[in-house]
Each structure stands twice: as C-alpha cells, then as structure tokens.
C-alpha cells in the first residue's frame, strides 16, 4: 500500500512538470502587456518600462522559466504583478471559499440525489421515475450562471431571504451559511443530477446481481432486500465516483462565484487573465492542477480500500 502511494506520487511528478511548463507557456503567450494593464493608459512610457523591468518581463524567456520553477520549488508563488500582494496570501484567502462552496454542493448533491435516485430505481418507469430523470437532466443542462441569476431573482429580490453581496465571514458561521446557501444550491443541483443518475443505475445494476436474486428467492421481504443488500452494495460506486465530480464542481464554481460575486480561485483566475497578472495566473493554474491530481490520487486509494479485489503491489 505504502509503496503504491509513493509510486503514484512519483508518477504524478513528471506530469506536474509538464503541466508547469504548459502553464508557463500559456501565460507568456497571452496577448496584452501586464505593465500597461497595471498602470492604466495614462501612465508614461518610462513608468511602464520601469515596471516591466521590475516585473522581470524584460528578462529572456528561459531565465523567466528558471525563476518560475525555482520559486515554485521553494514553495513561493511569487508576488502579484498587479497588486503587489504575495500570491500565496491571496490564494489562502480565497481558496477556503471555493472549497466551502464545492463541499456544500457535494453535500446538497448527496442529500437530494440519493433519495431521488433510490425512488427512481425502485419505482422505475413510473411517473416518479420520469419526473426524477427529467429533473436530473435539467440539472445537467442548466448553465450554473443562469440558474444562479434565477435563484437570486427569486430568493433575494422577490422574497428577500438571503443576502446577495459577497461571501460570509468564516468567524460568523450563521452569516456565512446564509451567504453560502444559494451559491451552494446552484452548484449543488448539478451534483444532485449526477448523484441521482449514478444512484439509479447503480441500484439497477446491483438488483440484477445473483445475490439479490437469491435473497428474493429465499423470500426475504423486498424492502429488506433493497436496504440491506442492494443499497449497501450500490453505494460503493456512488461514493467513489462522487469524488470524480468534485473536479467538475471545482471547475464550475467559477461561474457561481461570478454570479454571486463571491471570492474564489476561479474568480481569481478570471481576474488575473483580465488584468494580465502573470504571476497570479500561473500560480492559480498550478494550484488547479495540483488539486485535480490529488483528487485523482485520493479516488484511486479509496477505491482500493472499498473494493478488496483491487490489489496495490
């Protein structure tokens, strides 16, 4: 097990290295000049030149690349080219908001999705099933930003139940939850759709398995079979695959952050692109890559823990 983990981590290193190079290249070929973006169009040419020099943009590309790798190796994400804030500090401030949003969406997804999926599977090809299936298809189809706007109009303006501005303060949990509810629900409905579909098909798969037929044949009550045999076995893929969707949710959180004017990693990235903030942009992209790699690693490991047929050697 331990050697497997070490090997998986070692395997990730070359990939991350290529990712870093890719990020570096992507950020360098962005059109526009970060120095001009930082100073505004009224700034004098000399000031722009001075800032370019200071930002290290006049150095040859290979040197910039080495500096980039070097500072990353020291765990230093650099200083934002625009605001002068250490990027790490910015990330530390916004990342919890993205994670909290994603986590909230996953909770919503399981809370709503599993009951829907079960009822769909149990009452398949009835009205309940059709309704749930259309509902989950809707969840998959509606763009998060559109849903967000509709929810704001309904629950902030028409019925002013929730605040619309910004994210809450972590030190005030109740206020924080009030701020989190609608964004979490917006993203959560997407997760609900995934979970409903997974639960339904996983249960239907399990029902066909021999042990379930045997249980039925033995005359065990349907309800007992369902909850004791089917659900327990069907949950394995639901829980592990759920992790995979965390990646999708982290990506989609950008839109929710924009609509609800919440801070977050995605918004940091979009802002960095608009302002040509090279240092922030490359760091945020690296962080995304690391998060995805870590989630994938975690899924692999959890898979092995749950399913004893998989051996790590």
């Amino acid at each position: 097990m331990f050697t497997y983990v070490v090997r998986r981590i070692l395997q990730s290193i070359p990939i991350l290295f290529v990712v870093l190079t890719l990020v570096f290249v992507v950020v360098r070929v962005l059109p526009g000049d970060p120095a001009v973006a930082a100073l505004g169009d009224y700034a004098s040419k000399e000031a722009v030149e001075a800032l370019r020099e200071k930002m290290g943009l006049n150095a040859p590309l290979w040197l910039q690349y080495i500096r980039f790798l070097g500072s990353l190796a020291r765990g230093d994400l650099g200083i934002s080219a625009i605001t002068g804030y250490p990027v790490a500090q910015q990330v530390v401030k916004v990342l919890p908001h993205t994670l909290e949003l994603t986590f909230c969406a996953i909770v919503f997804g399981y809370l709503l999705g599993i009951p829907l999926g079960i009822s769909s599977a149990v009452k398949r090809n009835t009205f309940v099933d059709y309704f749930n299936r259309v509902f989950s298809l809707l969840g998959l189809s509606v763009p998060a930003f559109y849903l967000g706007i509709l929810l704001i109009l309904l629950f902030c303006i028409q019925f002013p139940l929730f605040p619309v501005v910004g994210a809450g303060d972590f030190s005030r949990p109740v206020e924080n939850l009030r701020h989190l509810f609608l964004p979490g629900l917006t993203l959560g409905l997407l997760m609900t759709a995934y979970v409903t579909r997974m639960t339904r098909s996983s249960i239907l798969d399990t029902i066909r398995e021999d042990f379930v037929r045997t249980a039925y044949a033995k005359g065990v009550a349907e309800r007992v079979v369902l909850y004791k045999h089917v659900l327990r076995n069907a949950m394995i893929p639901i829980v592990t695959l759920g992790g995979l969707y965390a990646v999708v949710l982290i990506g989609s959180s950008v839109m929710v952050e924009i609509v609800f004017s919440r801070p977050g990693l995605g918004k940091l990235m979009v802002g960095a692109i608009k302002q040509r903030d090279y240092t922030t942009l490359q760091s945020v992209m690296v962080i995304y890559a690391v998060i995805v790699v870590m989630i994938n690693l975690a899924i692999d490991l959890i898979y092995g823990l749950i399913d004893p047929r998989i051996k790590y050697d």
């Binding site: 990712v19 999708v248 990506g251 989609s252 950008v254 990235m269 995304y288 890559a289 995805v292």
Partner: peptide, 8 residues
C-alpha cells in the same frame, strides 16, 4: 490536459 477542470 486532464489535470485541469474543463472550464479552467
């Protein structure tokens, strides 16, 4: 390429 969420 799969190291980044689609939208990102």
């Amino acid at each position: 390429l799969m190291c980044f969420p689609d939208l990102i």
